[in-house]
Amino acid sequence: MTREEFDIFSGKVRGELISVAGRINLGDGQPVEAEDIVQDALVRLWELSERGYPVNNPKALAIKITKNLCVSRYRKSQKDAIRLETADKPGGETAADFVEAAENQRIKSSLYNRLTPARQECIILRNDFGMSLDEIAETTGRPKESVKVLISTARKQMLEQIKEFL
């Protein structure tokens, strides 16, 4: 898909994706920021396309990505709500938990940055995009067995680094 084709496609499906994202609310009656999610979904779809992922049905894929982003946002909102409810209660979560949540992204970046480019690429496609080994192999042009070894090695390396943190 070229950039021009993608822009035309985005214009056509954006309204429908916003309608999909608008179907979910965050539990407190607040709808998710549908337009933000759709923008994010379209960016991720373009990234997938750029990385060589076979985008056979862009609309179905855009809807799936939108749904997964909504679920991720929903889960986060549920967790934040629990944190707020328990923050001041004995035995509840403390300010350290808030810091921990905010730190997750920093830790993730730190772990990823220490990986070799090949391991990093496979781990991102696996963890962030949720691709299967076959899909990663197809996207990166590496044999499936190599992808599996790269991911396994990356995970073992990250685990050792985390043990040093703890």
């Binding site: 979904a41 991720r44 997938l48 894929l61 799936k64 990505i65 997964n68 982003l69 991720s72 997750n104 830790i107 993730k108 772990l111 781990i123 991102i124 963890n127 962030d128 995009f129 949720g130 691709m131 899909e135 995970r155 990250m158 985390i162």
Partner: peptide
């Protein structure tokens, strides 16, 4: 949990 992403294709 730190490495968890959004599983966009799940």
């Amino acid at each position: 949990t730190a490495a968890a992403g959004e599983w966009l294709l799940s």
